[in-house]
């Protein structure tokens, strides 16, 4: 098996590694780079515990080959907190007790952040369908969904505050790129 040399970027840092072609990105993260925050619950893309962003797109790292990430950007759970400052989602997960055993938590956080970056005003149904690929066996999902909705609420408040501030400073309001509202689909499309 011929090893592959890969140069990539993980959480903003340039990273180089060598891997066998049969190694998944998850294998590389965990076994070669010591980044064990992404978890393997199934290895078949059915549990979401290994969720990472690949070029801003939410994916299961167990279904990405290590060999194919050269030149791409990867974001993992390890890059979510900035220094000692937790991401608002991480803080809300703690406050809402949205984790019990915690094994699924990194995957949920990465997936939820990806949702809120696209849509900071999701409905409960949108949150539930977006996170349907992340299995949790402990919580029954209730507190996880509440934590995500509560974070979104705070994000909207913060956004409103900052835009009000800008307006009062009489600066031309920054053109806000409309986030694609793309999660409504799933709830609606289950007519069957």
């Amino acid at each position: 098996m011929s090893a592959v040399h890969v140069s990539t970027n993980i959480n903003g840092d340039d990273v180089e590694f060598v891997c066998r072609p049969d190694e998944s990105l998850l294998d590389v993260l965990r076994d070669r780079l010591g980044m064990t925050g992404s978890k393997e619950g199934c290895g078949t893309g059915d549990c979401g515990a290994c969720s990472v962003e690949l070029d801003g797109r939410l994916v299961c790292s167990c279904l990405v080959m290590g060999a194919e990430v050269g030149g791409h950007k990867i974001e993992t759970i390890e890059g979510m907190a900035q220094g000692d400052k937790l991401h608002p989602l991480q803080q809300k997960f703690l406050e809402h007790a949205a984790l019990q055993c915690g094994i699924c938590t990194p995957g949920f956080l990465v997936a939820a952040r990806n949702l809120l970056e696209r849509n900071n005003d999701p409905t409960e149904t949108e949150v539930r369908y977006w996170l349907a690929g992340n299995l949790c066996r402990c919580t029954g999902y209730d507190k996880i969904v509440r934590a995500v909705l509560d974070t979104a609420k705070d994000m909207r408040k913060a956004a409103a505050k900052s835009s009000a501030k800008k307006a009062s400073a009489k600066k031309p309001a920054a053109k806000k790129k409309a986030a694609p509202k793309k999660t409504a689909k799933k709830g609606a499309r289950h007519a069957a």
């Binding site: 893309g45 979401g48 969720s51 690949l54 797109r57 939410l58 994916v59 299961c60 279904l63 990405v64 997936a111 990806n114 949702l115 369908y129 977006w130 996170l131 349907a132 690929g133 992340n134 499309r189």
Partner: peptide
């Protein structure tokens, strides 16, 4: 409809 959000990414 195929798979999860994560699967849809790929």
């Amino acid at each position: 409809l195929i798979g999860s959000t994560q699967i849809q990414g790929r």
